[in-house]
C-alpha cells in the first residue's frame, strides 16, 4: 500500500472531526472519499498532508484552543504523521486544496514554479512544466496572466498543475469540480483520468458522486467523521439507505 491511514482521530477542542478512520490507497489506484458536507473529508486530506498538525502548532502558540491528533499515517513505508507539512511534499504526497487557492497575485507561470519549489534542478522543473502544459494547454496560453483573473475552471487546472509540479507519487485533490459549470466539470474529471493514466496515484474528494463512482475503483463513504461504507461504486449504490442518506442521490 502506498498510503495507509490507521485509526486516525482528529478533535478540535471537544468537536470530533475524524473518528477512528482507517483507509488505504494502493500504488496506481484512483480512490475516492465521498460524503455529505462537513463529514470530515477535507480534514482527512489536511491531516495526511500535515496541515492539521501545522494548525495545531499555531493554535498552541497563540493559545487559541487545541487540536488533538491521533493514529498513524504511513506513506511509501514511512510514518509521516509527525513530519511537518513542508517536508511531506518532498516525499511525494501533495494536496491540491479545497477552493483551488491559486496565489492570486502571481502569474500562472509563477504559480507553477512555486509548485516546483523543492526541485532545485532547473532543467528538471522545465521538463515537468512542459508535461503540465501538455496536460493543460490552456495554462500555456495564459503563462503571463495574473492567476486571480482566470476563470474558476482555469484556476482549478492551475491548482492541479501546480500540485503536479512537485512530481508527486500521490495526488490528493479536494473537491475539484465544486462551483464549476457542467462542461468544465467534465473537463476536470477527464484531466483527472489522464493524470491517473500517467501513473500518478490519486485520492479524490468529491461531491459529485455519480461521476466519481465511475472513475474510482474503490470509494470510501464518510459521515460525521466516521467511515460508514467502502467498496465499488455500483455496490454502494445498491444500498438504498446509503444512497439516500449519505450520497444524496
Amino acid at each position: 500500500m502506498l498510503l495507509e491511514i490507521s485509526h486516525l482521530t482528529v478533535r478540535y477542542e471537544k468537536a470530533v472531526l475524524i473518528n477512528d478512520l482507517t483507509l488505504s490507497v494502493d500504488t496506481g489506484e484512483l480512490v475516492s472519499l465521498v460524503g455529505p458536507n462537513g463529514a470530515g473529508k477535507s480534514t482527512t486530506l489536511r491531516a495526511i498532508s500535515g496541515l492539521v498538525a501545522w494548525e495545531r502548532e499555531i493554535k498552541r502558540r497563540s493559545t487559541s484552543g487545541d487540536i488533538f491528533l491521533d493514529g498513524t499515517v504511513t506513506f511509501d513505508g514511512e510514518r509521516i504523521e509527525a513530519i511537518p507539512a513542508h517536508e511531506i511534499v518532498r516525499r511525494g504526497l501533495v494536496l491540491c486544496p479545497e477552493r483551488r487557492r491559486p496565489f492570486r497575485e502571481m502569474t500562472v507561470l509563477e504559480n507553477l514554479l512555486a509548485g516546483a519549489y523543492l526541485q532545485k534542478d532547473k532543467r528538471k522543473s522545465r521538463e515537468t512544466l512542459e508535461k503540465v502544459y501538455a496536460l493543460f494547454p490552456v495554462l500555456k496560453e495564459r503563462t503571463r496572466q495574473i492567476s486571480g483573473t482566470l476563470s474558476g475552471g482555469e484556476q482549478q487546472m492551475l491548482a492541479i498543475g501546480r500540485a503536479l509540479m512537485s512530481e508527486p507519487q500521490l495526488l490528493c485533490i479536494d473537491e475539484p469540480s465544486t462551483g464549476l459549470a457542467p462542461i468544465m466539470r467534465q473537463e476536470v474529471f477527464a484531466k483527472i483520468e489522464e493524470i491517473k493514466r500517467l501513473g500518478i496515484t490519486i485520492l479524490l474528494v468529491e461531491q459529485e458522486v455519480s461521476t466519481v463512482f465511475k472513475l474510482a475503483a474503490r470509494n470510501y463513504v464518510l459521515s460525521s467523521g466516521k467511515l460508514i461504507a467502502h467498496g465499488r461504486g455500483e455496490e454502494l449504490l445498491k444500498d438504498e439507505t446509503l444512497r439516500k442518506t449519505y450520497l444524496g442521490m
Binding site: W54, A85, H86, P97, F103, A163, S166
Partner: peptide, 24 residues
C-alpha cells in the same frame, strides 16, 4: 529568485506555501 517566489507565496497564502514545500 526562488527565495523571492517563496516569500511572495508565503505572504499570499502561507498554508498553501507550506503545501509547496516552503518552510514558512
Amino acid at each position: 529568485t526562488n527565495l523571492g517566489l517563496a516569500i511572495r507565496s508565503t505572504a499570499e497564502d502561507r498554508e498553501v506555501a507550506n503545501l509547496m514545500g516552503m518552510n514558512e
